[in-house]
Design a protein around this nucleic acid. Structure first.
Lengths: 154, 154
DNA sequence: ATATTAATGAAAATCATTTTCATTAATATG
DNA sequence: CATATTAATGAAAATGATTTTCATTAATAT
């Protein structure tokens, strides 16, 4: 198998959509593919800078927009004032998780240890919604807001 | 019952936390209390401007931050580049809804007619999480990403 | 009535993101 | 392989929401 044409065959996928395959795009996908958590545009920029110092932040923003548009990457907003990105490998992806966000202090708890019912119900919900709205659902963002133990008792 | 001391008894609640009760704060709560959908800081500013033209946008931001911190208001971010606010009357609130977001064209479908599985999913999950993480959950944000009917067939 | 100090308005500062525009480089074509 | 085409890029400027600064105002305690 030719180098770089594994798993996603990104080059082919880009060309198929009429887009060019560039160092910058490859590099963004490399960084995101290795990430174990959601990355901001600047996180990506800093990691990439070590390997490809020539790629600017603007290009990263543009690349991310494209990747989101192609459905390869998911953009999330956790209310920090900046967006975060992750590969859209679907809800089964290694780093997929939901959030508990404290409205008091802003603390965010990522949790991946879903309760059994949660997984099954979610599947059924996605199936139901797909049918009802004729949507091909590929991912989801689930966040619960409230007060953490500390803020609750103030 | 004295005027202005109904439901929330805001004045008392503010004083209890050591905060002063001001026209601006009352006015933000008035606007949010009457709203039928999530409002941006500027939405609030414009509505308030008709009644209290003296209150500036800065104060609205400061007031909203305080209200969120007190757990009276929920701040949400739908990825539009600006935050939206609503009273934290809980997920049963009139204007509560979930989103289906197309990663192809950006179209957003709000839906309120939750399917049974979805309601059950949320109830069980919220209960489980509250216990597990000692959180007082007051709201949630649920978004499903995928391709809409049109983008799916391209 | 007055003192104290939290709350405010206006303007400036910040910070993530987007736009502009001239340059570069990926691909198609000869 | 050389060259033309035009998408992709970088740098700098622009944008727009939100935050900070600082002098002034007003809510509360005395």
């Amino acid at each position: 198998m030719p180098r770089g044409f594994g798993r996603g065959n990104w080059h082919g996928r880009f060309r198929g959509c009429g887009y060019r395959w560039t160092i910058a795009r490859q590099s963004v996908l490399d960084v995101l593919g290795k990430a174990t958590r959601h990355l901001s545009a600047e996180d990506i920029y800093m990691q990439m800078h070590k390997v490809n110092p020539g790629v600017g932040l603007t290009t990263i923003y543009r690349t991310l927009e494209l990747l989101v548009q192609m459905g390869i990457v998911i953009k999330s907003d956790f209310g920090e004032g900046r967006a975060r990105y992750e590969m859209a490998e679907g809800p089964k992806g290694l780093n997929h998780h939901h959030h508990l966000i404290c409205t008091g202090c802003g603390k965010v708890i990522d949790y991946t240890d879903f309760i059994d019912d949660e997984v099954e119900l979610l599947q059924r919900t996605e199936k139901g919604l797909s049918k009802k709205y004729n949507f091909k659902i590929s991912n989801h963002l689930i966040q619960f807001y409230g007060l953490c133990q500390v803020c609750k008792n103030k």
